[in-house]
Simulated scan of single mutants.
Amino acid sequence: MRRPSSVEVMLLVTIGLWSLNLTVSRYILTHGFLPLAYATVRYGFAVLVFVVLTLVLERSLRIRRADLGIVAAAAAFVYLNQIGFVYALDRSSASVLGLILGATPIFAALAGLLLGTESLPSRFWAGALCSFAGVALVALGAGGALSGDLGGVLLGVLTAATWAGYSMLVTPLMRRYSATRISAVVLGAAWVPIALTGLPQLSDQDWHLGWEVWALFVFATLGPLVLTNELWFRSLDRIGPARATLAANLQPFLAAAIAVVLLSEKLDALELAGGVLIAAGILVARRRRVTAPPSE
């Protein structure tokens, strides 16, 4: 029996931690942490860890001037991603958001098309339509059930789309910088607008949340944010964003299953059917021809 490759192990660990993070973050947000306060403190903690690691290992945070535009664009995607993520979890459920994030590979391919790194045949568009139909079913189910609302679903779509765009943007940077340095610089640049947006909630936040919430907060930062950023970037460098995001097909159902078991969330038939359509659309689109990014 073939042993899994190092890239496969990195992706499996990443997907497992991301899936668990939806449940952990949902629990944190429903036990006293305000959404923007959570994003601000969590990303501030993560940036501090990345900066310290980079300075210890590389003794420099320097980015070439020619790459600052990419860094700024990637930071903007991270900012939008975090706003979408915390409010999607606040307004919807971890299981619903997990299903919606299954459409991330479709958004990654569309981002690649815009950047000129993807060639998308007709079967991709058939798969994309199937996946978007699945998202629509999830939205219909969430709108009529206790698991969420339409606004939460739309924020979930924003989360998936911005993460895909972010993954495509940072791939060229992997040729010149380490994953740790990219995370320190890009997440640091994104933290500034996150903190500015979160200032009102930071002033209103009650910090007496209990040791359980703080323990989960530390896990949600060091595991699903710090460790997975390192593993995800290394995977992108080895196999590219299109194949890496396709490997994340397991995440929607794993995240939903974890939320159902640990948070006692419920999914209705429409939401489950939507999740199946999202996965089917990815399977239809997955055989597309992928054009490698131009060498620099």
Score class of each variant (00 low, 15 high):
M1S: 13
P4F: 09
L11V: 11
L12N: 02
G16Y: 13
S19G: 07
S19F: 01
V24G: 08
S25E: 10
R26Q: 04
R26Y: 08
Y27H: 11
L29M: 05
T30K: 11
T30S: 13
T30F: 05
H31W: 06
H31L: 03
L34M: 11
L34S: 04
A37N: 03
Y38T: 07
A39M: 02
F45E: 04
A46C: 06
L48P: 02
L55A: 03
L57T: 14
E58N: 10
E58P: 07
S60I: 00
R64H: 13
A66F: 04
A66R: 15
G69A: 13
I83S: 03
F85M: 12
V86T: 09
A88E: 00
L89V: 06
D90N: 15
S93C: 10
S95K: 08
G98I: 01
A103K: 07
P105D: 13
I106C: 02
A108K: 08
A108R: 04
G116A: 11
G116H: 11
T117A: 13
T117C: 07
E118K: 05
E118D: 08
R123Y: 12
W125M: 00
W125N: 03
W125H: 03
A126H: 12
A128C: 14
L129R: 12
F132A: 15
F132W: 14
V135F: 09
A136F: 14
G141F: 14
A142D: 07
S147H: 06
S147Q: 10
D149C: 09
G152P: 00
V153D: 09
V153G: 06
V157W: 06
L158Y: 10
L158P: 03
A161S: 14
W163C: 05
Y166S: 01
Y166C: 01
P172S: 07
P172C: 09
L173A: 04
M174P: 02
A179H: 01
I182P: 00
A184S: 04
A184C: 06
G188S: 08
A189S: 08
A190H: 05
T197W: 00
T197E: 00
G198N: 03
G198E: 01
Q201H: 08
S203N: 07
L209Q: 10
V213W: 04
W214F: 13
V218F: 15
F219K: 06
G223T: 08
P224A: 13
L227Q: 10
L227H: 13
E230F: 15
L231N: 12
D237A: 15
G240D: 08
P241K: 06
P241G: 06
R243N: 12
A248N: 15
A248T: 15
F253S: 08
A256V: 05
A257E: 01
A257P: 01
V260M: 15
L262Y: 03
E271L: 07
G274F: 05
G275F: 01
G281F: 05
I282Y: 06
L283Y: 15
V284A: 14
